[in-house]
C-alpha cells in the first residue's frame, strides 16, 4: 500500500474546520449555525483519527467516539432550542435573540 502524507490528512481537517467556522461567522439562520458546528466537530474527529493512524494507536479513535457522543448530545439540545425558538418567535433568525427577554 502506498502511503498518504500525514500532513495532508491534518490539512484536510483544518480546511473542513475553517469551512465550519466561516459558516458559523456568516450565517444568520440558526439551523445553518448548528450544521456548521457539526462540520467543525467532525473536522476535529477527523484530526483525531488521522493522529490515530499516524501513531498506529487506538486512543485517537476513542477520542473520536467521545466527540461523536458529544455531537449527538449537542444536536439533541440544539434542535430542542431551535424548536422552542421557532415556537416563540416564528423565525429562525438568530438576531431576534439579542433582546434577552425570555
Amino acid at each position: 500500500m502506498d502511503a498518504i502524507p500525514y500532513e495532508h490528512g491534518l490539512i484536510l481537517a483544518a480546511i473542513l474546520f475553517v469551512c465550519g467556522l466561516l459558516g458559523v461567522l456568516t450565517r444568520r439562520n440558526i439551523v445553518f449555525v448548528l450544521m456548521s458546528l457539526e462540520i467543525m466537530l467532525n473536522a476535529c474527529g477527523l484530526a483525531f483519527v488521522v493522529a490515530s493512524a499516524r501513531w498506529q494507536h487506538a486512543e485517537g479513535q476513542i477520542m473520536y467516539l467521545m466527540i461523536l457522543t458529544l455531537a449527538a448530545a449537542e444536536v439533541a439540545v440544539g434542535l430542542g432550542l431551535i424548536i422552542q425558538m421557532y415556537r416563540r418567535f416564528h423565525t429562525v433568525d438568530i438576531s431576534v435573540l439579542n433582546e434577552m427577554k425570555g
Partner: peptide
C-alpha cells in the same frame, strides 16, 4: 469579507504549521 479574511488567516497559520514536518502514514488497520 471579514469572516472570510479571518478564516483565511487561520487556515494559513494551520497549513504553515503543519507543512514543517514530513511524516507519511502507512495505513495499518487499527
Amino acid at each position: 469579507i471579514g469572516p472570510g479574511l479571518l478564516s483565511g488567516i487561520l487556515l494559513l497559520l494551520f497549513v504553515s504549521t503543519l507543512l514543517t514536518h514530513d511524516v507519511t502514514l502507512a495505513p495499518v488497520e487499527v
